[in-house]
């Protein structure tokens, strides 16, 4: 008689052998998820203005500190109404991008209005939050620009944790430290942003891209600049326009006038 209750009601070990516990673990190895980003994009900056939103991101996909892919566009138009700006993992960006392309095609068959930027932001934040809740995050911080249901300029962010927020100006990565203070100087409130003209807003965003290129080691002087405006009836009027820009005339001449830190003695 086996007096250990845990062994009762089981096939006898002396006839059938002990229970093979490996059956309890279907996979030899545990599931693996994205635990850290691999090929990454750095900051995205975006600013609202009177009749739309400006967004910019450079064209670099880095592999650690290696400038691996120098012509990857990280701004993606959606249904010619909105723009997404991705920072973080590039493969996750491409996955989301593929997914959204098919979504926009599906939506285009429907009878409803096309998804606007606010709808898209809600959709993406749910996607990101559900993936983080499965411990399998999409390693991105995404800025979404376009128009909301009231046809007002819309700019919001969703990150890999599903955290969402919106503001007159937004920037991810190093941009939140270097570009946001510059943009907030010109548009700290929605009212201020609503006074900016397109030209002013582009100038501010370009200034931000310059500062980022000067001080962010993972940045590039070639970047994409998107202008989102309301669609008008006529051909080519409004919608999403993405242009390729290059920073010109870089100069570090100002550097020897900076004093007070570093190894300088005078």
């Amino acid at each position: 008689m086996d007096h250990r209750p845990q062994n009762w009601g089981r096939p006898r070990d002396d006839i059938y052998g002990g229970y093979d516990v490996s059956y309890m673990a279907p996979n030899a190895e545990p599931n693996t998820h994205t635990q850290s980003p691999v090929v990454t994009g750095t900051s995205v900056v975006a600013l609202k203005y009177k009749d739309g939103v400006i967004m910019a991101a450079d064209n670099l996909a880095s592999y650690g500190s290696l400038a691996r892919f120098p012509s990857v566009q990280r701004l993606m138009p959606f249904a010619d109404t909105s723009v997404l700006g991705f920072s973080g993992d590039v493969s996750d960006m491409q996955y989301i991008s593929r997914h959204l392309t098919s979504l926009s095609i599906d939506e285009a068959y429907g009878v409803q209005d096309p998804l606007n930027a606010a709808n898209l932001h809600r959709y993406l934040s749910k996607l990101l939050y559900s993936r983080r809740s499965k411990f399998d995050p999409l390693w991105n911080n995404i800025l979404i620009a376009g128009f909301d249901s009231d046809d007002k300029p819309f700019l919001a962010s969703a990150d890999l944790l599903g955290t969402t927020y919106s503001s007159p100006s937004l920037a991810s990565g190093y941009g939140s430290m270097l570009a946001q203070p510059i943009m907030r100087k010109y548009a700290s409130t929605e009212e201020d942003a609503a006074k900016l003209t397109k030209e002013q807003a582009i100038k501010i965003v370009k200034e931000c891209m310059k500062v980022l290129f000067y001080r962010d080691a993972r940045s590039l002087d070639k970047y994409s600049l998107a202008v989102v405006t309301r669609k008008s009836g006529e051909e080519g009027g409004g919608g999403v326009q993405i242009t390729q820009e290059k920073l010109e005339g870089m100069s570090w001449k100002f550097a020897d006038r900076i004093k007070g830190y570093g190894t300088q003695t005078v």
Binding site: S166, S167, S176
Partner: peptide, 13 residues
């Protein structure tokens, strides 16, 4: 205010 670490993400959330 909505923050993360020392960054202010937005002033109205």
């Amino acid at each position: 205010r909505l923050t993360s670490g020392y960054s202010i993400h937005t002033r109205y959330s």
